[in-house]
């Protein structure tokens, strides 16, 4: 298991270009065959745009083996339902699993 701590990208994560930039920055450190978990600890805000972009590239990169660690971050909890509804792909599946775990 590989863990990505989002705080290394900042405490406020906004915009699609920044989400893509974050993915490109972390990609060289990732093994495509190993599941990835995402840790929101110490992040104040993630916008849905940033999260959508980051997760889209990340799940494409390792065929959906991405899990979101349980979090109480209000911005994440607000973004997940719309991300799940908007998509029908790896991102949606990742988000749905996370929402079920946090019920």
């Amino acid at each position: 298991m590989q863990t990505i701590q989002l705080k290394k990208f900042g405490t406020v994560l906004i915009s699609r270009p920044a989400g893509l930039e974050a993915f490109n920055a972390i990609r060289p450190q990732l093994n495509q065959d190993t599941p990835i978990q995402i840790d929101f600890d110490e992040v104040l805000t993630v916008t849905p745009s940033w999260l959508d972009e980051f997760l889209t590239h990340l799940t494409d990169y390792n065929n959906g083996k991405v899990e979101l660690l349980p979090t109480k971050n209000a911005s994440v909890l607000a973004s997940l339902p719309v991300l799940r509804e908007a998509r029908n792909d790896f991102v949606s599946a990742t988000v749905l699993r996370a929402m079920e775990r946090m019920r």
Binding site: I14, T45, T47, P48, S49, A74, S75, A78
Partner: peptide, 17 residues
């Protein structure tokens, strides 16, 4: 509150972005 700070930052960030 921390939740309110998180959400206000989301709202402003998303609208401006």
């Amino acid at each position: 509150s921390e939740d309110m700070a998180s959400l206000l930052t989301l709202v402003a960030g998303e609208i401006g972005d």
